[in-house]
């Protein structure tokens, strides 16, 4: 027997590309955590706005926002994978939906923007906390294939915040 109300299956991506993107993101976030810990929070707003940890987080947040809006396939690290790495690999055993990692990029955008705002506001460890949280999510995805964004999506569905109309039930 076949599926009854299977979810719509849109664009697909190479799962190794998604893992690669998550790996690069995790490394950069970890660097940002280290920079944030070493640099601390500067005294004035003008000083805080040019601290290395803040600048790197703004870049990462911009990448998250871009890939959440344009799709994870247009994330710069995904593009790098497609152009430089994928041609050297065998074709993937199977493709994955692009929707989960794109949703996860949106979650990453939210977390890093909050971290950047907290840093500008001078909140101690605001940037470090946000970057660390985003790192854990990206690292678990890169190393174990764990999708935190997927779980958050499910919680939103269970909480009744997201609802689709049943098509056949």
């Amino acid at each position: 027997m076949t599926a009854q109300t299977a979810p719509a299956r849109p664009a697909v991506i190479d799962p190794r590309g998604a893992r690669f993107t998550a790996s690069v993101t995790a490394v950069l976030l970890l660097v940002d955590v280290a920079l944030g810990l070493v640099g601390g929070v500067a005294a004035t707003l003008a000083e805080r706005a040019v601290q290395p940890a803040f600048l790197l987080l703004v870049v990462l947040a911009a990448v998250f926002v871009w890939s959440a809006a344009a799709g994870v396939a247009r994330n710069p690290w995904s593009v790098l994978f497609r152009r430089a790495i994928r041609p050297r690999l065998a074709p993937p055993a199977e493709l994955e939906d692009a929707a989960p990692p794109t949703f996860a990029q949106g979650v990453g955008a939210l977390v890093t923007v909050v971290g950047a705002v907290l840093h500008l506001a001078g909140v101690p460890y605001g940037l470090v906390g946000a970057a660390a949280a985003a790192f854990v999510a990206a690292f678990l995805n890169a190393a174990f294939g764990y999708c935190l964004g997927c779980r958050l999506y499910l919680l939103l569905v269970r909480g009744g915040l997201i609802r689709k109309r049943a098509s056949t039930a």
Partner: peptide
């Protein structure tokens, strides 16, 4: 039999 259900449609 195998039945697949979308949680968003049948919360």
């Amino acid at each position: 039999a195998h039945i697949e259900i979308d949680v968003a449609e049948r919360p």
